[in-house]
Computed example of a mutant assay.
Amino acid sequence: MSAAVVTAVARDEGHHFSKPTRASIRLLAGLGVEGDAHLGVTVKHRSRVARDPNLPNLRQVHLIHSELHDELRAAGHQVMPGEMGENVTTRGVDLLGLPVGTLLRLGDAAVVEVTGLRNPCAQIDNFQSGLLKRVVGRTEAGELVRLAGVMGVVREGGEIRPGDEIRIELPAEPHRPLDQV
């Protein structure tokens, strides 16, 4: 198996669907990505702020596996890193298969704790028509399957950049599967 690595990093000061990629981003412990619209202890996602602005921000960092971009390209969608709103694009990590509480050590110092799955919304189809049905599906049993990456909180800050190694630390068992956050 190939090494787990960061392939791209992105941030955006505004609440836009896509985020421009950067040479590096800095994660701030307990807050998120420095200079990103979702930075903060409490929720920053606009629909969640409208419901309750005092909820804890479990969506400080959005990670997507570049293998999803590969699958989307094979299905006719051109999606580049950052365009689906992620802060960190990875390769070689089964993000969707990780349990809640997994620690992702990114680069030399940064640590992100995985909190749950991103819940894709209709904005994805505004970005590219038909994309939502590629990142949300159902199992044969009718259970919803979300494929648009995972969310996390910053436990230890640090700068990360493309090419940085990702080290995975699973939480103690029993493992809890990811659900939407």
Rank of each mutant, 00 (worst) to 15 (best):
Glu159Thr: 15
His175Cys: 02
Gln128Thr: 02
Leu55Glu: 14
Leu104Pro: 05
Pro177Leu: 05
Val79Asn: 00
Met151Arg: 10
Val9Leu: 01
Glu165Val: 13
Val135Tyr: 06
Asn119Cys: 14
His16Ser: 14
Met151Lys: 07
Leu103Phe: 01
Val136Lys: 14
Leu31Arg: 08
Gly163Asp: 10
Met151Glu: 04
Glu13Leu: 11
Leu28Met: 01
Ser66Thr: 03
Leu63Asp: 01
Val61Met: 06
Gln123Asp: 12
Met84Trp: 03
Gly158Phe: 05
Leu27Gly: 00
His15Arg: 13
Pro120Leu: 08
Gln78His: 12
Ala3Gly: 12
Ile166Thr: 07
Val100Gln: 13
Glu34Trp: 09
Val33Asn: 07
Ala29Val: 00
Val33Gly: 07
Gly149Arg: 07
Val49Pro: 08
Val154Phe: 04
Ala3Thr: 12
Glu156Asp: 15
Ile64His: 08
Leu95Pro: 04
Gly116Met: 08
Leu68Tyr: 03
Arg46His: 15
Val150Leu: 06
Ser2Tyr: 07
Gly92Met: 07
Met151Gln: 14
Gly97Thr: 02
Glu156Tyr: 03
Leu63Ser: 07
Gly85His: 02
Asp70Gly: 11
Glu169Gln: 14
Ala4Glu: 03
Asn54Glu: 15
Val150Ser: 01
Cys121Asp: 02
Leu27His: 05
Val112Tyr: 06
Val88Glu: 08
Glu169Val: 13
Asp125Val: 03
Val100Ile: 14
Ser24Thr: 11
Gly82His: 07
Leu72Trp: 09
Thr139Arg: 09
Val150Ile: 13
Pro20Glu: 03
Met84Cys: 05
Thr102Cys: 09
Gly40Thr: 02
Leu144Lys: 13
Arg48Gln: 14
Val135Trp: 05
Asn87Pro: 04
Pro162Trp: 06
Thr102Glu: 04
